[in-house]
Design a protein around this nucleic acid. Structure first.
Length: 282
DNA sequence: AATGAAACCTGACAGC
DNA sequence: TGCTGTCAGGTTTCAT
């Protein structure tokens, strides 16, 4: 389901609602797929931890956790992190205990405030993991690739300019950039006037710089509108995003290009639907 | 090393 | 009503 703008929206919503709250207990479902760390390990890191901050790293939601020192006095110490990947259909809910438990709920955290934090994921492509942070201050969770919003044009150009793979595939490669997914790859390529099947190495530095600018612009616009809700995506408050109304190519196969009226084409690249205007993108 | 296809899951929707 | 096929915002694994 979610790419960078959707995960950013969810993480901001969660931070606003549960930062400062304390996790009292953890229930994890029977299905093993979503758990990347063992259930025991997840419960051990989460229980009795205070949620200091919720933020996005790539397409992951990171909960920074603290605990009071053993003697109960002094400042709370960094304790660990809860890492949530929403996969295609994952959702985070902040609920009251008696709110209806949705089918495919795989985790329920009881909070000191009396509310619950729930993870729901029908397709089970989502993943839950924890990282322990000991006193030696381990670095904590890091995305495999560059953060798209913070990347500089020069670095972006160098990252892509020698890859022979289609530029669309390269944009989806999380080891290069972490956070770009299918919708925003297509939308950025349209804005930059580049066909998705062009090999990255065939693009000029100028074209790559333009793509870099287009990508950052489209991601920022999408965040401002709360992300795209194309099927079932909702944020932590259960609200839909509105950026799908701004899509220029994604999901518009056969419809006229908003610039030149040429019908939008759909092809498969790297196993993913890819949409482009055959006239505007070369 | 790098590319592509298949696999992992469920649900929604179109067509018959 | 119900069956079949297709598609979905992602990632990992296996074969070439």
């Amino acid at each position: 389901m979610p790419e960078l703008p959707e995960v950013e929206t969810v993480a901001r919503g969660l931070d606003k609602r549960v930062a400062g709250d304390v996790i009292e207990s953890v229930w994890l479902g029977e299905k093993p797929e979503p758990l990347k760390s063992s259930a025991t390990e997840i419960a051990a890191v989460l229980e009795r931890a205070r949620i200091a901050k919720v933020r996005r790293v790539g397409k992951h939601i990171v909960f920074d956790l603290e605990r009071a020192p053993r003697n109960g006095r002094g400042k709370a110490q960094p304790h660990g992190q809860w890492i949530v990947h929403l996969g295609m259909t994952g959702r985070m809910q902040v609920t009251q205990p008696d709110d209806e438990l949705l089918k495919h709920t795989h985790a329920v955290l009881k909070l000191k405030s009396g509310r619950e934090l729930r993870f729901v994921d029908p397709r089970r492509f989502g993943r839950l993991a924890v990282v322990r942070l000991d006193a030696k201050a381990a670095a904590g969770f890091a995305a495999p690739g560059d953060e798209p919003l913070g990347s500089e044009a020069h670095r972006f150009v160098e990252l892509f300019r020698k890859r022979k793979t289609p530029i669309k595939s390269a944009l989806l490669n999380q080891k290069l950039l972490s956070g770009v997914g299918n919708i925003y790859a297509d939308e950025a390529l349209f804005r930059a006037g580049i066909r998705p099947r062009r090999s990255a190495a065939s693009l000029t530095r100028e074209q790559l710089r333009k793509l870099h600018g287009a990508l950052i612009a489209v991601l920022k616009e999408a965040i401002a509108l709360g992300g795209s809700s194309v099927s079932d995506y909702v944020d932590a408050d259960g609200k839909e995003g509105f950026f799908q109304l701004q899509h220029r190519v994604y999901g518009r196969e056969g419809e006229p290009c908003l610039v030149c009226q040429t019908p939008i084409k759909r092809v498969i690249i790297a196993g993913r639907s890819s949409h482009y205007c055959p006239h505007c993108q070369r």
